[in-house]
């Protein structure tokens, strides 16, 4: 599913990445532990987290993730947004809990990363 369509369906607030080319998203990953995301998320995944500090952009960029969703009304730091704009990483905000974000994304056809799939 196109990220623009996901944003529309989910009503995410876009705080970084409005001007990037649209991308197709098929999978997602949830974690607040950065090394866990590094170990288990896959290229192009949507990453759902509560962390809002600039290092999430470094991780997303390193892993070439499709975007970051901050759940539960979390707001990113200003530097996070700046960095995300530089790196081309979309940051989306939601008032829903991580659980609900994932549930609704799953309904839209975005699923989890398959266990033994190529991870890096």
């Amino acid at each position: 599913m196109k990220l623009s369509a996901i944003i529309r369906e989910m009503g995410f607030e876009v705080v970084a990445g409005k001007d990037y080319p649209d991308r197709t998203i098929t999978h997602g990953y949830v974690s607040d532990l950065l090394s866990d995301v590094i170990a288990n998320a896959r290229v192009n995944d949507l990453w759902i987290t509560l962390q809002g500090h600039p290092n999430i952009v470094a991780v997303a960029s390193m892993k070439e993730l499709g975007g970051i969703i901050l759940a539960n009304n979390r707001k990113p730091e200003v530097q996070t947004i700046q960095k995300a704009e530089e790196e081309g990483i979309p940051i989306l905000l939601s008032a829903l809990s991580a659980f609900e974000v994932v549930g609704r994304l799953w309904d839209l056809g975005i699923s989890g990363s398959t266990k033994n799939a190529e991870k890096i």
Partner: peptide, 16 residues
Amino acid sequence: ELGFGAGIGLNNIQRC
């Protein structure tokens, strides 16, 4: 609290 310190950093290095 920043999401570091999961104790998998060195393992990630090893895996890569």
